[in-house]
């Protein structure tokens, strides 16, 4: 399998990966290489600020297209700050739940609001 390293600093043009647009662009880039069966490495070197918004768009969105075993085989990260690794784990867990929960949406809404 061919390997492609994507430099996040280069994608966002700086030290802050914070916007949905930049996340979306990264999602498109990752998808393009995964579509060609590349092994993709996301290099977060010199990224100092990271938001859930960016990662939801870049990484969370992938779970609508690919399943977990596929992504585990094809995707990895490097140079994430320790606290950002914790955020990444939360984003992944949330994405898996989000796409699963879409089916249970009506039940959740009933539980939350039907006593109103």
């Amino acid at each position: 399998m061919e390997r492609k390293t994507i430099n996040i600093f280069d994608v966002v043009g700086g030290k802050a990966a914070v916007s949905t647009e930049d996340g979306d662009r990264l999602f498109e880039t990752i998808s393009a290489f995964l579509g060609k069966d590349f092994e993709v490495v996301l290099d977060f070197v010199n990224i100092e600020t990271l938001t859930s918004t960016f990662l939801n768009a870049a990484i969370g969105q992938l779970y609508n297209k690919y399943d977990s075993p596929f992504l585990r085989k094809h995707l990895s990260t490097s140079n994430l700050q320790p606290e950002d690794k914790e955020l990444m784990v939360k984003i992944i867990e949330r994405a898996k739940e989000y796409f699963k929960d879409k089916e249970n949406l009506e039940k959740d809404i009933r539980e939350a609001f039907d006593d109103e």
Binding site: S68, R72, S76, N79, L80, K85, I92
Partner: peptide, 8 residues
């Protein structure tokens, strides 16, 4: 958490 421990 190691980079390699991130379970996609």
């Amino acid at each position: 958490i190691e980079d390699m421990d991130i379970a996609f």
